[in-house]
Design a protein around this nucleic acid. Structure first.
Lengths: 220, 220
DNA sequence: TGAAAAATCATCCGTTTGGATCGAAAATGA
DNA sequence: TCATTTTCGATCCAAACGGATGATTTTTCA
């Protein structure tokens, strides 16, 4: 086995932690569950990460950075775009990321409800900077007449975020009620089109590649 | 103490269960926590409700019925409204309910993420009928030209729901980042106006009473 | 009033939790 | 090669969990 394919214990633990925390959240996940999925003894978590909380923070750091990177994929081309196209592009990337990686969405939502020090940590280190930049972008869009200036940018921001994430958060419910697999590529694009049409009018939908789905390597 | 103010054990348990489950969800809530809040011995839960799961179902039944009732408050006047006004009215009631009673929102979100048999139960008994009616209403609105007919009603429905609930779900985060109390009456109305303006154009905002906040008696 | 029924309580049980401990094993480098 | 460091795993622990039990108290009603 090449060392690239044979993940070391630390990486295996992080990968398993992302999966388990992303499915059940912090409280409902046990270190034994994570260790079992990683195929190592649960005592090893104490060694590589000093506690369950540390492993959780490492997981969130990994996921949030990955998400921000995905949203800024086309950043180089932004200078050549109108602010409308720029906003549309970031929404597209945002939705596609959450379709490909539902874990962060679930973790952040669970923690936002629970509150407490874990939520404070992720807010201070990740959510606040992200939200500040997003709200600034919306304010700019309002200057350019994309949204009415009298609407509060904060509320618009949360409507963006909520609309982009909701179907992936409710994936099981939607499957059960409507028989729709929201993670299917065509459903993801359909949802993007719906958001862009309703929020920003003009359905000049630019196809864009939806092949984000594959290639989910973990660090290195 | 009048018997109206002196709740019996069963009612005290339900009231406490709504609070605790509404804050932490099913798994993170303990029967001891609920019994302590109700001021009774935790063994009483087994007596009045056969299990923790039964108490949870009773809590969800109570809250969901309360929510549907709130949304249909003005139903009598709907026949005299245009379909646009009707949709706006139900959105207004929907948002105001979740501002006054954040518990159901939290419980449904947590369970939607977790999946499992509790989620299946609430989907079959409450979410599906609610969603079916809402989607039908949106399809009707599309017939009347309020929304483009080519947009999928399901996605529009979830955007409605998500946009209406998001700020209350993220209340702690918004307080921390923006210093805004989303439960304040003026913030609730501001959010409603933002949704109605962005989704349905025309900001002919009808004030309406926002005094829903008080009077949260638990069954009698 | 008093016996039967309903309601409440203190207490116990088996299980699972996160974390600590410590010896064994593997890797490292002079 | 061999001693030192790094890594790993079996095991123990106190705490909290949902639920069961049986005694005790309160209520009901003839």
């Amino acid at each position: 086995m090449t060392p690239d394919l044979q993940l070391d214990t630390r990486s295996k633990l992080l990968k398993a932690a992302v999966t388990v925390f992303g499915k059940n959240g912090f409280e409902a996940s046990s270190v034994r569950q994570i260790a079992d999925l990683a195929g190592v003894n649960h005592g090893s978590i104490k060694y590589h990460y000093s506690s369950k909380g540390d492993l959780w923070r490492a997981s969130v750091s990994y996921l949030f950075s990955q998400m921000e990177q995905a949203v800024h994929t086309n950043e180089a081309a932004w200078s050549k775009m109108t602010s409308r196209e720029r906003l549309k592009d970031s929404i597209r990337s945002f939705v596609r990321y959450h379709a490909a990686h539902p874990e962060l969405n679930r973790i952040l939502t669970i923690e936002a409800i629970a509150g407490g020090e874990r939520h404070q940590w992720v807010t201070d280190n990740y959510t606040r900077p992200f939200a500040d930049r997003a709200v600034a972008g919306i304010a700019l869009a309002q200057e350019d007449g994309i949204y009415p200036k009298e609407l509060p940018a904060m509320n618009l921001h949360y409507m963006h975020v909520a609309s982009g994430r909701i179907i992936f958060l409710m994936a099981q419910e939607i499957q059960s009620i409507f028989g729709v697999d929201v993670f299917a590529a065509e459903e993801v694009e359909r949802h993007i089109d719906t958001i862009l049409t309703l929020f920003m009018g003009a359905s000049d939908l630019k196809p864009g590649s939806a092949k984000e789905r594959s290639g989910e390597r973990l660090e290195n």
